[in-house]
Simulated scan of single mutants.
Amino acid sequence: MLILVTGGAGFIGSHIVTALAGAGHEVRVLDSLLSAAHRTAPPIPDGADWWHADVRDREAVAAALRGVDAVCHQAAMVGLGKDFADAPDYVGCNDLGTAVLLAGMAQAGVGRLVLASSMVVYGEGRYECPRHGVVRPGPRRVADLEEGRFEPPCPTCDDPLVPGLVAEEAPADPRNVYAATKLAQEHLSAAWGRATGGRVAALRYHNVYGPGMPRDTPYAGVASLFRSALERGEAPRVFEDGGQLRDFVHVRDVAAANATALAGMDDLPEGALRAYNVGSGQPHTVGEMAAALAAAHGGPKPVVTGQYRLGDVRHITASSQRLRDELGWKAQVSFAEGMAEFATAPLRAG
């Protein structure tokens, strides 16, 4: 197949391009090289048909879709950004860009889409109260955060909660601008599928890390910020008490999930979107990740600051059982192996 990878020069996209080319596909890359992710021009994977263009450019997208069999849509502005002033850029890049792409696909008759979604669409993760069963806590109160009470309480009785794994059926509850734009991408893609009969696999990535992450940028993930600090000889600064649970999944596993989804596209329901969590299945706390990275790097031990960011959630870990059962994907890189590699892996000038 000829596969168009939007954002194919980015951190995750470039690994996907490599995986698809290795599986024998022809790959076309469309990327605008946004300055938030690219301070310098990145190397383009060998053999890729390179198009330097913005996914919001209708003419460029229409041209790039000619002859394409499927689209792997990675182009997006990621992370929490600096502040709410970033909102128009997020909506423009993520939602307008997706709308332009989908309109072009409808016009060109391209009916297969793998969408890079995110676990942030869920908001907080899954929680159980010993007295009230599964509950959904609201946003954490500023007064609690200021006092160092980071665990969300039961919304009914205020008792402590037990975190669990989120399945794809969990209701969406985006709690920041980035999360809202990722959910909007899913809704737009679902509308496109219903209108055209196209098939959509929405891959909800959990915390992706690995070689080639951009360094020192508010748009990067926490793993990159910790790794950048260690490279400078500084201690990673861990927010809250470090007890936030996450699922850190290696970028090569994410690339493999995209290749697997594309290979199984014809088995998906026609005209529908199917969501899949993409996680390692090995939850760890942010503090554990920082400690493992520092130990493997040989740098200073992490410092727990007690600081917090409004919009951050406390615990979010995934069940990726659907992706394993339906498409046969399973993460291959263990937490220990991945952190040992990432501790010394090159970063991008992001």
Rank of each mutant, 00 (worst) to 15 (best):
C72L: 08
Y90I: 04
D95S: 14
L102G: 07
D49I: 02
Q107D: 14
G92L: 13
P88W: 06
P88A: 12
K82Y: 03
A106F: 05
R56S: 03
V71A: 01
A106H: 11
A64D: 08
Q107I: 00
V110W: 07
L96D: 12
L65Q: 03
R66K: 09
K82E: 14
A85S: 15
V78C: 07
L102E: 13
D69C: 10
R58I: 04
H73G: 00
W51E: 01
G79F: 00
A48K: 03
G111T: 14
Q74T: 09
V114D: 13
A106C: 09
L115P: 07
A63N: 06
M119H: 15
Q107P: 01
C93L: 14
D86Q: 11
A60V: 04
L65W: 00
W51V: 12
A53S: 02
V61R: 12
A116C: 13
D69P: 11
E59Y: 01
H73E: 01
A63P: 01
A64Q: 09
G67I: 08
L80K: 15
Y90T: 07
D86Y: 09
D54N: 02
K82G: 03
S117F: 04
G97N: 12
K82N: 12
V100Q: 12
Q107S: 12
A108F: 04
L115K: 05
A63S: 06
A70W: 11
W51K: 00
R56G: 02
D95Q: 07
F84I: 14
A48R: 03
C72W: 11
A106S: 14
G92N: 12
A108G: 00
R58P: 04
G79E: 08
L80T: 11
F84C: 05
G67V: 13
G104S: 06
T98L: 01
A108K: 07
C72P: 03
V91P: 07
D69Q: 15
V91H: 12
G109Q: 11
G109M: 03
T98D: 06
T98F: 04
G92C: 14
G81L: 05
V114Y: 15
A75R: 09
G109W: 10
A48H: 05
A76K: 06
D57G: 05
A103K: 14
D83S: 11
Q107V: 02
D57C: 04
V61S: 10
L115H: 08
W50K: 00
A108Y: 00
D95N: 13
L115I: 05
G79R: 03
A87V: 13
L96T: 15
G92T: 12
R66H: 02
V68K: 03
Y90G: 09
A106T: 05
P88L: 05
R112H: 15
G109E: 05
A63C: 04
D83K: 08
R66N: 01
A87D: 15
A53E: 00
V110I: 13
G97A: 11
L101S: 11
W51L: 05
A48C: 08
A85F: 07
G109L: 05
V100I: 11
A70Q: 10
G79H: 03
V114W: 13
D54E: 01
H52E: 02
G79P: 10
G67E: 09
A53D: 00
N94L: 08
L113E: 12
E59H: 10
A116P: 09
A116D: 02
L96S: 04
A85V: 15
D83H: 07
R58Q: 04
D86K: 13
G111S: 10
